[in-house]
Structures are given as structure tokens and as C-alpha cells.
Write a protein that binds this DNA or RNA. Sequence first.
DNA 1: TAGATTGTTAATCGATTAACAATC
DNA 2: TAGATTGTTAATCGATTAACAATC
Lengths: 216, 216
Amino acid sequence: MFVENEKHITIQALHRMPYYLQKLRELKNEGVEVISAPKIAQMLNLNEVQVRKDFAAVSDSKGKPKAGFSVLELISQMEELLGFNNTDDAVLVGVGSLGHAFLAYKGFEEYGLNIVAAFDLNPEFIGREISGKIILPADKISEMCFRMGIHIGIITVPEEQAQKVCDQLVAGGVLAIWNFAPVHLSVPENVLVKNENLAASLAVLSKHLKEKMKNL
Amino acid sequence: MFVENEKHITIQALHRMPYYLQKLRELKNEGVEVISAPKIAQMLNLNEVQVRKDFAAVSDSKGKPKAGFSVLELISQMEELLGFNNTDDAVLVGVGSLGHAFLAYKGFEEYGLNIVAAFDLNPEFIGREISGKIILPADKISEMCFRMGIHIGIITVPEEQAQKVCDQLVAGGVLAIWNFAPVHLSVPENVLVKNENLAASLAVLSKHLKEKMKNL
DNA sequence: TAGATTGTTAATCGATTAACAATC
DNA sequence: TAGATTGTTAATCGATTAACAATC
């Protein structure tokens, strides 16, 4: 069977989407109804062909020569693509300072993520509640994920524990893992790991700074 | 003048470094003194040539044919490259739930980042302390950064305020900005913005999940 | 009509991967 | 020596950018 309408969207393009979306919402609030790719490109400091291709990748609706694209249509198609419209349930493992923070963070809901439970190894934390989410013992991960039909796991444990926790999540049927531990996780090929690499980001900043300071 | 020994390291390579470093530290703890690129590649699920090139980019010391690379040397050279050895001071702007979290997060220090002060617009927060860091009014950003010689700013404000805060940081002499607001920031060309894109990461997870569930 | 903008094909660029001689 | 591994040059791959005809 030949799949005709399967849109190919690169991961790089996906990462540009939130910035398009933010700008489009801003334009909408200013009452702008139609916008051209070159104008968006200039505002976001991108190449105009890239913007046109990105827009083509999200939306079936076409732009109008001389005018541009419908702001409202782009917004709703991007929200759909980014999954902001439908909410996914997730669990979080590791209630250290970063995990604690994420439990309290309101922003994830806006992006369509709902943390329904948290786990930790430390018996001191177990049974406590953070932002209305109860903390359960880590040895219940697989069972709970399976029972609640959870398919997203967030890992905020120290590096030594990350792989073990990951295995438990996978055993519980989790298919997508958001990993904040600076460790490579081994998973079966149908499971996706999205690594969040705060150390590397900081290294980028620190390197830039070092070079700038050298020139002063 | 001709610069011979200026190492070129791509941003992609830099992002792989924390994973090398973690694995190398693990090997060190197991008493391993020398490791080959193909073995590391296998452990981290990377291409072996890529590993060799990455190692060559960080270290002047060469690997030994048939043996491999010195684990200890690689560790210290990577720590140096990633800036884990020297600490940079930074300020944080926006003490909402994410900003609050970061102030409490212990992990940044390990990566060589020290948050020395926080700012917020909300008068309710001002003067309060979080993890020993005092919260100052946002209109003092430029002055304080300048006076304290701060060159790194972390932005955790809502999107509407991000550009303004960014301008204040730049006015105060900040040269590197870690931006958690899903907004494109306009800065002078000598200033670096490193965008942290939680919404995009979540979209990657959510998209993967949707495709997997479709096939069940 | 003239001109801005679109969509698409071709060229460029940069990173990854393959191939292979040199080395211990 | 034989063979694993290195460092490097060449080929491949994929994303970005340039060029340009089609359109309103």
C-alpha cells in the first residue's frame, strides 16, 4: 500500500514550531489575519524558504501568492501538530530538587502533559504529596504504569539509577521517555528516549563566554 | 597570525560529551584505565568513527593503536572542555514555578554554574529568599549585573516578558542567555542565546506516542 | 499590468559514515 | 607476525539555501 499523505517533518523543523506558534499568537492578538513567510522569517531571524517549507509541512492549506498564510489556520494546525490540544498522562521518577520542581511546574499542562504520579526510592518521601501528586515507592513503577495505562515517563533521578528506572518504566509499558539524567539509556527499539541535556547547554554558554572574555 | 591549534568542535559533538563523560567515569570506577573508541561506540550506540573524531576534538593526547585512549586523560579533558572545573556566576529572572525550581536545584553547581541572584516583577516575591538567594526587583537587573560583573542570565519568565528581560540583561553586560521562554529573542550579535525548548521536546514524545498507539 | 509571494527543483553546506593505510 | 585499533581521506546523507517559474 502506498501512503500518499504522510507528512514528513524533521526534528529540526519540529523544534522551530514553538517559536512560530508564539509569534503567530502575538500577531493574532494584534489583529493580523494573514502573514507572509518572508515577514515571519525576518522576525525570527530565519531563512524565508525554510519558513515556507516548515509551513507546508504542518498545514494542508496553502499560502496565497502576494498575501501569505492564514494566521488562525497556522495556529490551530501547529497546536494540533505539537499536541497542545490533547493531553498525555505521564509519571515522574525521582523527586530530588529538579523532580520536585517539575511536579510544581504549571507550564507542562499548557503543552499537553499531565503528570499523574511520582515515584522515589527514598522512604522519607513516600506518601508525601507535591502539588496534589502523591509520591509512591519506586518498586511500584511497572505495576502502576501498566494499571493506569501510562505511556510517558520522566526521569529525574541521579545518573546511577537512571538505567534501572528506565527498565522499570519500559516493563510497565512506557513508550516514550524524557530523560534528564546525563546518561545514555538502552531501550528496545520501539521506545523513544528524548534526552534533555542541561549540562551540554551550559557548556555551550560557558564556552561562548570564555571566548568573548578572551577578546576583552 | 596563523592559528594552528584552534580546535573545531561542533555543537553536536559538544552535546555528546556529557554522555561520554558519564560513561568514562563509570569505567574509571570499575578500574578500567584504557578504552577503545569501538567499545565506547557500542556502549553509547554511536558510530565508532564519530567517537574517534569526538575524542580527537577534545584531547591533544592521542590514542594508542590496538589499545585505545586513557580514561583518566579523557575525563579531565572533557571536564575542562565542558567547563565543569571553573564556575561561572549567573542571575536568574522569573521566580515562577520553573524559576523557583531552578533556584532550588543543586545540579547546576556540579556543571559549573552558580546562581548568585534572582529577579522578579511580582512585588510579593521581592526580598524573599529561596535556597539562600535573595529575590530582587526586576528593574535592578542591568545595574546589578553590571556591578557584580555577571555575564550569564537565565530567563524563566512568561513569554510576554522575555524580550524585555533579555534587553535588560544585555544592557547589564550579560553575554550569554539561557532562555526557557518559547520565544525568539533578538540580541546583538556578540550575545549568545541558548534556547531550551521544553515544548518541542514534549512534542517529539507526544508525536512518537501517537504513532505507536496507532499501530496497536 | 507589475510586483510580492508562493511552491518546487537544483545547488550548497556540513555532519555522519565508509574505506583504508599506518601503527603498536 | 597477525590483528585490533588508530587517524585521515573520500563518499554519503540530509538539511539549508539559492534560483526561478507560477500565481494572484
